[in-house]
Design a protein around this nucleic acid. Structure first.
Lengths: 342, 342
DNA sequence: TTGTATGCGTTATCAA
DNA sequence: TTGATAACGCATACAA
């Protein structure tokens, strides 16, 4: 019956450090978290003891004792969609300095999955939560409202934020992209959309608004599918659209993958871009400006959205009142060869 | 002086459930983790109590008490590189059923970053660790060897695994891709490489082996840069290569981004593919088969690597001895129009 | 199969 | 500025 058996596997604890430094455990704890509240002499001794023992705080014990984990819960609908991958990268990069870890969840574009993951995340008492979009289910929204931590909705702006928001207007993006093609002289402008999540729906709404304003809207021009987006799907949707409306003279694509599929299909079928068909994409991936012809697209500030979301959450954690709860990072319509008719 | 103040914010605890169900706390704990070890009648009462109270176990308390967090630490060099994004997706999907969470870290292709993150991850006592590549620093390798949890190295196979491995041979991939172009009749085959991480280096080594075997190797054919890969970089590297070796008649690209950049540049400069220039990529993104002309590439089983890594780690956690510690998932060379000369 | 006592490593509370 | 004590919520060890 060994009374001093350590279950944890012999890692040095805060008490070991305290003993070596000749101080109380709580003083070590403070020296680590709020160094300015500990006298300089003790601080030195403690730092030395920490180094000598190779002490690393146990985040689990810390979270249990303080009822607060140093974790940012992040919920995105997809890990491979490069748009979200870049947002996530922004979040990680912004958080890499501080004490916070990231807990990433993939909702697969499902509201129910989001609810489930929210429950899991909440059980850890995260320091902040970042969720994608503004269309949470009633249950999810309620969970987020009750969460006693900052919440940032990202990717979109809209009315009635749960707490804070960073994003841009997908409706405006769709409208401007479409309006530009109308200005360029295109008339039978099709809409190609995959997945059709809420943000895609709002880009479609923007397209429709622009088309109706010009008296050009025709429901037969709209081609959508719930299938996830891909380059090959862009090709297929374009073929369908062309078969349905042979007079089609342009397409606004839900995203750049689709646009690329359209571009390749035009090459293959010897359809001239931008003369016979104009193309506009969305998100402005690197390849769009390299493509031949280069493709008009809507630049979105994805990485920055991630950074801004973290910045806002950190400010809230620090107790600062944000000057604005909703931040619109906007977008930029990049005009390129694919819509430069004449 | 309230003796019964709860610091944790009033969430129901396992004791609350136990009291309501009229059993001991430890029985609730068991009913949750090993239901088969609790009698059916008690199990029913406990389940009812859990539901009624909305009890959710506290993962931090659980980790502290058991000296083991239900967390898979995953280290990848990039979050946006679609190759790793898909591996990560495989990991997440495979883990979504069980109790394990994912702790994802971005090493930015830096060995030092990897060491740092490893320290952070290890402090949580993860259930398993998944790391990318086989070129860990000495320190990192030592940390991994001392970690008392399963370790899986992914993306590559090689000798001397730390614990387990899932991947394929990048050398063979590069060699076969190159050999195919030689067979197709190309002679002045250039190598285009970005980032040049260890896996890229081995693909280059495979290229070189194939070229030397055919007596075609010429160092001036090799164009590499430490700059991260992108479509635009592919275009630039190709221009450089062509300027340096005007007789260039094919390129093996480190990855598909570069290959796409080459393809677009060929379109722009009216260089015929595959007649004047043959192109082979690596990874076989969806777009490669849709491109015009379609692009030969090496399919790698990224999603499956993630799934397999999780499966192996879970087996090890369950105490099963793996039949093989190193799993080679191979690759497939997809022959397409871009190398179909004649 | 079930329960009791105790420990996990840290921080909050309150007093000195 | 520093420290003693008592949680935090759960699981291990052992006994019944």
């Amino acid at each position: 019956m060994r009374p001093r058996t350590r279950r944890g596997g012999g890692r040095p604890t805060i008490s070991d450090v305290a003993r070596l430094a000749g101080v109380g455990a709580i003083t070590v704890s403070r020296a680590l978290r709020e160094p300015e509240r500990v006298s300089e002499s003790l601080r030195g001794q403690i730092e030395r003891a920490v180094t000598e023992l190779g002490y690393v705080p146990d985040p689990n014990a810390r979270a249990l004792a303080s009822a607060r984990a140093e974790v940012f819960g992040v919920l995105v609908p997809s890990l491979t969609n490069s748009v979200f991958a870049e947002v996530v990268r922004g979040i990680y990069d912004s958080l890499s300095d501080g004490p916070f870890r990231v807990q990433l969840g993939n909702t697969h574009y499902s509201g129910l999955e989001e609810e489930r993951l929210l429950q899991v995340f909440l059980s850890q008492r995260p320091a902040a939560l970042i969720v994608s979009g503004i269309d949470q289910t009633k249950t999810a929204r309620s969970l987020l409202e009750k969460a006693d931590c900052p919440v940032v909705q990202i990717m979109e702006t809209g009315p009635d934020p749960i707490d804070m928001m960073v994003g841009f207007s997908h409706f405006d993006g769709g409208r401007e992209a479409t309006a530009n093609m109308i200005t360029a002289g295109y008339r039978r402008i099709g809409f190609l959309g995959a997945r059709m999540d809420p943000r895609s729906q709002r880009r479609l709404a923007g397209y429709r608004a622009a088309m109706e304003a010009a008296g050009l809207y025709d429901p037969r021009l709209v081609n959508t599918t719930p299938v996830p987006s891909s380059v090959s799907l862009g090709r297929d949707l374009f073929r369908d659209a062309l078969a349905k409306v042979p007079t089609l003279d342009a397409v606004f694509c839900n995203n750049d993958d689709l646009a690329l599929g359209v571009l390749f299909e035009c090459h293959r079928a010897s359809i001239e871009v931008p003369q016979q068909i104009g193309i506009t994409g969305f998100n402005d991936l690197d390849m769009m400006q390299v493509a031949f012809p280069s493709v008009t697209s809507v630049t979105t500030h994805r990485y920055e959205i991630g950074c801004q979301a973290v910045a806002m959450a950190c400010a809230a954690i620090a107790g600062e009142r944000p000057e604005q709860r909703v931040v619109d990072l906007g977008f930029d319509l990049k005009l390129r060869e694919s819509t430069a008719r004449r």
